[in-house]
Design a protein around this nucleic acid. Sequence first.
DNA 1: ACCTGAACACCGTTCAAGT
DNA 2: ACCTGAACACCGTTCAAGT
Lengths: 193, 193
Amino acid sequence: VQPARTPGQRAGLTREAVLAAARQVLTEFGLDGLSMRAVAQRLNVAPNALYSHVTNKQTLVDLLLDGVLADVDPDVATDEPRAALHALMTITYDTLLRHADLLPTYLARQGARGPNAQRLGDIVHARLRTAGVRGARADQAQHVLIIHTIGFAAFASHPNVDSDGEPGRSVTAMRRDYTTSLTWLLIGLLEAR
Amino acid sequence: VQPARTPGQRAGLTREAVLAAARQVLTEFGLDGLSMRAVAQRLNVAPNALYSHVTNKQTLVDLLLDGVLADVDPDVATDEPRAALHALMTITYDTLLRHADLLPTYLARQGARGPNAQRLGDIVHARLRTAGVRGARADQAQHVLIIHTIGFAAFASHPNVDSDGEPGRSVTAMRRDYTTSLTWLLIGLLEAR
DNA sequence: ACCTGAACACCGTTCAAGT
DNA sequence: ACCTGAACACCGTTCAAGT
C-alpha cells in the first residue's frame, strides 16, 4: 500500500518485485487467483506495466516454479551413499509440497528444466558418483529420481477424492508410498549391475 | 455442420456428444484451444447449452482425462509376472503419450482417480498378485506404478528445451529413461523382501 | 526505459425466459 | 427437460501515447 504516485512518476518495478508480488498473490488466492491483473493490482500498477519486466504469464509461472526448487537444502546428515540419496530426494519432496499451489503445473511446464532444477540435478549427480554410478547411467538416474519426485509431489498436492466421492489415500499414506517407491528405485539402481 | 435449426427446436445433445466434440476440439486446437465456447460452436449450440449435460469445464476435462486410460489394452504377450507388469505399464505409457495434449494436466486433476484409472489399478493389482505381492504392499505398488507412469508421460509430453535454450533429452531418450526406471522399480519391488 | 489508457479478442458461468 | 439471449465479471496481451 504505497502513497499514490502523481501521473508520469515511475513505479520503480523490478523483475524480482514482480515475482515477489506473484508469490504473494499465489499464497493468498491460489493458482486460480494468479492473474497478471491481480499481480499488477498488488503492485499498484496498470496490468500491462508487468510486460516491461516479464515477457508473459507463462514465463512468469516458469520462474516461480523453478524458484520452488531453490528452497531445497542439499545438506544431509549422512555420507552413506544410498541413505544420502534417499534423504536428498525426500527433502526435495517435502520442499515441493510446501509450495503445493504450484505443483499441479510443475511437470507440464518449463520449471522442471530451469536453473534450480539443473542445480539439483548436479547435486544428485555428485551423490550418484560417490555411490559408484557414472556416465550415461548417472544421467539417466539423475533424471529419473527428479521426475519421480516431482510427479509424486504433484499428485499429492491435489485434493484427494476418487470418482465415487470416497476419500482416497491420505497425505501421510502418500508420503509413505513415495518413500518406499524411492527405496525400490534405489535398490534397482544401485544393486542390479 | 448440421442444417440450421428453427427456433425452439432441440439440438439433441447428449453427454457423450459433448465429450466427443471436446475431443475433436482438443486434437484440432490443443489444450489452449479447448474452451466451452469452442466445444459449443462445434455442436452449433449456444455456449451455455453445454451446462445441461456437463456440470462445468473442470469435470468435463476430468472425464476426458479418465477416458484416455480407457484406451489401454491390458492384454500382454507374456505370462511371466515381471515381464507382464513391465509390458502393461509400458503400454500405458505409450497410450498416454498418444494423447499428449491432455497430459500436462493429468496428475493435477481428478482424471488420475477416475473409473478407468481404477480399472487399470485392478489389472495391475491382479498382475501383482500372480507375482506374489499382496495386501498393503500390493496397494502401494499399484499406486506407485501408475503415478510413476503418468508422471513420466506428463513430463515427456512437454516440448523439451532447458533454461539455456539447449535441446533437452529426446523423446526416445525419455522413453528409454522411463523403461529403465520401471525396471528398477520392479527389481526393488519384487526382489527385496 | 518505464508506465498508462484504451482497446481487442477472448473466457466460464448464471439467470430469466422460451418451447 | 433442453436450449437461447443477454449479461456479469473477469482474462492475457497489444498498441499508441506520454514522461
